[in-house]
Write a protein that binds this DNA or RNA. Structure first.
Lengths: 303, 303
DNA sequence: ATCAAACATGACTGGGCAGTCAGGCTTGCT
DNA sequence: AGCAAGCCTGACTGCCCAGTCATGTTTGAT
């Protein structure tokens, strides 16, 4: 199909553009004012178009070159085509101002959303859509292009993906302030043994780490309240009836002094390195994607 | 205008055509069946289109590549554009099956028209349009592209034009048969001195040559009937009341024996070399023009 | 687990073309 | 006649890209 258009040389978008420029300017000289070099190139390119289409697109009338009727038609046809391509490209770029970002629910709530304001300030017209996903699903969707960015664990980065570190996500063990004041303090072991625990149970790696800690303390792990997300555990904590383990980032949401933090080095076992990941194709295909990635890394870095 | 389409690489008609081929075939593998070399090229070109437009035009779904919605739109847009260009080109070629040929009236009547049948047989679909013009006007119109071919004098060929010889146009002095039979023959001098002459007076060079001959014979030149064209002089000859000088080619139009030819070597001074001329751009721009030129030369050659 | 199909990517080559340089020709004005 | 503007053409260079070679990765079927 359309093979005859490609079996001969002489047709190119550049040449068609020159035809359009000459038509709009009125002559080669006016299309390339004071530039004999471009003037000679334009002359040649118009001739090549004439030879390709088998009709003159312009002819000399005195000193001045004028487009023929056929040349005028070709120029208008070209204008429509270049406009369509330009509009299509602009449309792509318009639609592609929304970047999608997947992360765990708590990271979205306490890391991403608080910082997105700064990112949007830096990129007027850019939008984000966040998606609450598990790490393995994030990896899958980034790989096949359904997700632009994701925050995943360091050890989940797949080959082929680009990832940069965001820092360490830490967890804090909090108990209601009045519990701690009544007893003059409470240890992690005491809390696990004696107090009702509200904990997030859907994150396999977190749950596994918590089991390890309980085992090290020789204490059975029994959640009084199993929650699906850390925001839910924080809500439980606020009732004053439970203690909880929550991301360090979430502690900023609590009134100062309302909770007391249990200090225990074993909690470091729950720490995880968070990475911002994306598909390298993204930055090749999408305008601004590389800059957005850079800004995301800066803004989302955990201190 | 449209500068952004040309300031970045990655857009070309070839690539757009590949997109269309992949869309119509359903996959790269089907667009390039059993051809890993073209398969890898197509893959690359689709990626370059994606990078240029800032959106994926295709994505991998399992083993198979599928065009995205954007890719489908771009493919359809491409189809329209290539069709427009193809139609425009076909239209040019359709319209440009008419070649224009200018010559003197007598040459058109006695040389061109009788031979055009053979030319048209060789080029089905080709048309001619003849125009009665003077040599200098023929030269002018060929030069600025308003005329495709012309039959001109050898000494009128302008630099820049292409010309091939057609042979010598000769002129014959004919008198009504009964005049010659009554006197037992008649010389050119006698005819000029004693008999009413019908002659063509608009061709400067011919008239000038005739004056020269009369002067050589010491006879005043007085045309009894001044005609604008040789067909008119032939008509006058047919009345039996005039003798005339007409192109040798025209004698084939007369009934055998109706006229008697005056033999005189001085008539050779009226001979002229006829050339078929055209603008070299014609054969570059117009399909078939080179072949048509060749056939014209062969068909119109004077023996 | 193995294999073939489908696609992707690195690297290289040669041709085409944009861009450039130099100079010439034609036209129109003075 | 002389000159400048507008256009044309030969020739050259370097870059881009189509085309190619080789190989790798992913996916789906067996």
């Amino acid at each position: 199909m359309f093979d005859s258009l490609f079996s001969e040389r002489g047709l190119s978008l550049d040449r068609l553009k020159v035809l359009l420029e000459v038509r709009d300017a009125g002559s080669i000289a006016q299309a390339a004012p004071g530039d004999p070099v471009r003037q000679s190139q334009y002359s040649r390119q118009l001739r090549e178009l004439s030879e390709f289409f088998g009709c003159e697109v312009a002819h000399r009338r005195g000193k001045i070159l004028k487009l023929t009727a056929a040349g005028e038609r070709l120029a208008e046809l070209t204008r429509e085509q270049l406009r369509s391509l330009d509009d299509f490209r602009a449309d792509c770029r318009q639609q592609n101002v929304t970047f999608t970002l997947g992360a765990g629910d708590s990271l979205i709530q306490w890391l991403v959303i608080p910082k997105l304001g700064r990112i949007l300030d830096a990129f007027p017209g850019i939008h984000f859509s966040t998606t609450n996903l598990r790490t393995n699903e994030i990896v899958r969707q980034i790989t096949d292009g359904r997700l632009d960015f994701g925050i995943i664990r360091e050890n989940a980065v797949a080959p082929g993906l680009k990832a940069v570190p965001l820092g360490v996500v830490r967890y804090a063990a909090l108990v209601p302030g009045r519990w701690a004041r009544a007893k003059g303090g409470i240890t992690l072991g005491q809390a696990l043994r004696e107090r009702p625990l509200a904990t997030q149970t859907t994150d396999g790696q977190f749950a596994s780490g918590l089991r390890d800690i309980a085992q090290q303390l020789g204490v059975p792990l029994q959640a009084a309240l199993s929650c699906q997300s850390f925001p839910q555990t924080l809500a439980a904590l606020r009732t004053g009836r439970f203690w909880a383990l929550v991301p360090e980032l979430a502690t900023h949401d609590l009134p100062p002094g309302s909770m007391v933090r249990i200090a225990d080095e074993r909690l470091r076992q729950l720490d995880r390195e968070a990475m911002l990941a994306w598909n390298p194709r993204l930055v090749r295909v999408r305008p601004n994607a590389a800059k957005v990635a850079t800004h995301l890394q800066q803004a989302l870095t955990i201190h």
